[in-house]
């Protein structure tokens, strides 16, 4: 496991997203209301850029016409053919077992604890860290 410091928390506010390239892979990062998520930026279907997808919620129905809407902001729809992915797990909604994209653990860590890493950090800041 490698930990990558990608940005100070102050520069990655809630409601924003960005793309990073780590170890040659593009990763799409999202801050949804203070929670961080990371997905490989390549849809397992035809390779659409997930970082350009829309964040939505989960529409479900136990029976025809019986709509529910949950988990707003936690479902990513691919910008191309609209496959839905769970931001937290990378699993597709329609077939979570067979179709998924890689999810990465993303967290905010105090600069204090990152001092051992090889990038320069300031102790008074928190940083967004991606594990690959």
């Amino acid at each position: 496991m490698t930990r990558h410091v990608v940005a100070p928390v102050s520069e990655f506010p809630p409601g924003t997203r960005r793309c990073v390239v780590l170890e040659g892979r593009r990763i799409a990062l999202f801050n949804v209301g203070g929670r961080y998520f990371g997905l490989l930026d390549r849809c397992p279907h035809q390779g659409g850029p997930l970082s350009e997808g829309v964040l939505t919620g989960l529409v479900e129905a136990g029976a025809p016409g019986d709509y529910s809407f949950s988990r707003p902001g936690e479902i990513l729809r691919c910008p191309w053919h609209g496959w839905e992915f769970d931001l937290a797990t990378g699993k597709s909604r329609f077939d979570p077992r067979r179709h998924r994209t890689r999810a990465f653990r993303v967290s905010a860590e105090p600069g204090e604890e990152l001092r051992a890493e090889t990038v320069p950090v300031r102790v008074e800041e928190d940083y967004v860290v991606v594990e690959t």
């Binding site: 490698t2 990558h4 410091v5 990608v6 793309c19 990073v20 390239v21 659409g48 890493e117 990038v119």
Partner: peptide, 15 residues
């Protein structure tokens, strides 16, 4: 460790 922060998401697809 390679860290590259991109300013905006980019839409290019691999050629």
């Amino acid at each position: 460790m390679t860290v590259e922060v991109l300013d905006r998401p980019s839409g290019e697809t691999p050629a």
